[in-house]
Design a protein around this nucleic acid. Sequence first.
DNA 1: CTGAAAGCGCTTACAG
DNA 2: CTGAAAGCGCTTACAG
Lengths: 363, 363
Amino acid sequence: MARISKKSDIDLVVAARRWKEINKTDRRPTIQDVADLAGVSKKTVSRIINDSPDVNAATRDAVEALIRAIGYRPDPQARGLAAKRSYLVGLITDNPTPQYVVNIQQGILDVIRQTGYELVVHPCDRKSDTFLEDARQFVEVQKLYGVILTPSVSEDERLAEELRGLGCAYIRIASVALDMDSRMIVTNDREGGKEAARHLAQLGHTRIACVTGRRSFRSSTERIAGFEEGLAQYGITMPSHYILAGDYSFESGLALGADLLDLEPPPTAVFAANDEMAAGILQALHVSGHTPPDSLSVVGFDDFETATRVWPRLTTSRTPARKIGQLAAERLFEFHDGDREAPRENETTPELIERDSTRRFSH
Amino acid sequence: MARISKKSDIDLVVAARRWKEINKTDRRPTIQDVADLAGVSKKTVSRIINDSPDVNAATRDAVEALIRAIGYRPDPQARGLAAKRSYLVGLITDNPTPQYVVNIQQGILDVIRQTGYELVVHPCDRKSDTFLEDARQFVEVQKLYGVILTPSVSEDERLAEELRGLGCAYIRIASVALDMDSRMIVTNDREGGKEAARHLAQLGHTRIACVTGRRSFRSSTERIAGFEEGLAQYGITMPSHYILAGDYSFESGLALGADLLDLEPPPTAVFAANDEMAAGILQALHVSGHTPPDSLSVVGFDDFETATRVWPRLTTSRTPARKIGQLAAERLFEFHDGDREAPRENETTPELIERDSTRRFSH
DNA sequence: CTGAAAGCGCTTACAG
DNA sequence: CTGAAAGCGCTTACAG
């Protein structure tokens, strides 16, 4: 034991010194330098940095120690060029909510940091004529290791097909399973909608309205469907004129909030399919001189920062965006490992956060 | 005229067909393919894709047309490996405000889209022991084309020095000029502070307080200094107990908002050095039963989304984040072009947006 | 204005 | 378990 560790220590010191002597021009060491210093071939070093099992354990330990000693880091461009791949993960988004995007980014970075991979961001416009072509070029030219798709691009079947055609690994983040398990992170928005409904029902509300996002957004239809299911458990149904069509924007919440006040009979509570619209509703109430939740309780969805900035602070169903980003990144690595049936976590469930925008219904 | 265009059209059709014939395996064309099809050397094609002036105009036109016809795109890894560079722009941030980060990203992408460059995001923690080392590795291993630094990492002189040492181009976004023109985008926060002061003074306020960010954040000291200068123009000074120390967080605004109410004599207006703290102050007022701006006018800084979500909507000094991102990206390309004395725009000035959180002082 | 040769730093495919 | 040769798709340095 002692002998071995002593021996390798000395070798390392010698190797590190030799490297300093050789490296007059202060360049970074290459795989050739490591091979020469270790007295093995480049191929052996290559096997080691690629975690190939076919390497003698002692050789591996010695070379790994040497790599640390001289600070060798393989060049991602050279590796990529030779292997026709890259060490870049793409994030394709079509989501205007900054808090969501940044949190997803953060979650992905939590996982890929220290792995040598980097995150390349790629917002896009699904309505653009060149959307698919842009995405294809991005993936193909950069030879991306894989891409992570957030709603609503994650719901685009043509994009998924294109990516499969290119052989590009992808993970879709969506409210329901749209694809095989190994390609999905499911956020179970329907469950969040149910929780919101139970909360309002348990507070004694019965005249309950809602504001939806666009029908083409799966998250919105799931949230609203879950909400209606939850209400049904308490024998409550929403009349059709209580269901107002928004578009996830603050502005739509602001506009529809005014309409809510004119509904007959007036609802005592409203569920907005996201926080932005809920914030708009609160503002509409303020504008018209109301003091929510006095006349109207409001529930949102997402629990992004806006939820705690508005007054009263929003009761809302939390979307754990950072966690979702982490799971998506882990899933991407698993996908490459062929770990396709892994029992890993690939779902999140919203959690209802009770704050001040809802209160017990009183006659 | 007609003859030339006809001739080149025919050539292109032939070339594109030949490419389809040759390319049985559906691979992307390489520089060699373009050279063969065009009957020139790789080096000539290389000159053309690199915008070298030393190419015959007719040759250039013909090869460029061919490149479009067969959809050739140079491989960034191969180019990078050969030229010891990359086509990646890094964004190093240390800023917790998602709206700012996303807007800066968007602005950078506005400029680098369609250029073949991609944006790699790199949030960091300046307080970490390995901060400098991490940044160095990132820049060196990825051979970044350049990096854009946002506050407060942009204020870190050690980082700037490190980047200069590595020969990595960088652009610093900061409230004041910390570096040579060609490396700076200046946001003139001081001017925004002044505007905020004038606004409150013109509304008749004289007992005016403020909530600062951390002293180590240059933007905060600039905003507050500008505010005091603006007040001075109206003969107003803030007593020292009117200057409360926050940290740019909503939570600090919430906590200090409560303190504001206990100040003797009570201020009639307050300037918060960012919107997050202003939102916190508004919430503190609501919690304690006030209805701003009745008892207290509040001015923020940034005009991020929060400003329009809160009630009353914030009067605030706008930081044009997307524009700033665009300018920074343009500046980065100019830096590489050696266009170092270019008279290009490299400053932005905040603009005061008047909304509902401020009102005329009435006795 | 144009080109042939060498090389960037790795991996692949093959051999042993 | 290990290695020598060839090649990934470009640019550089040099020559003409």
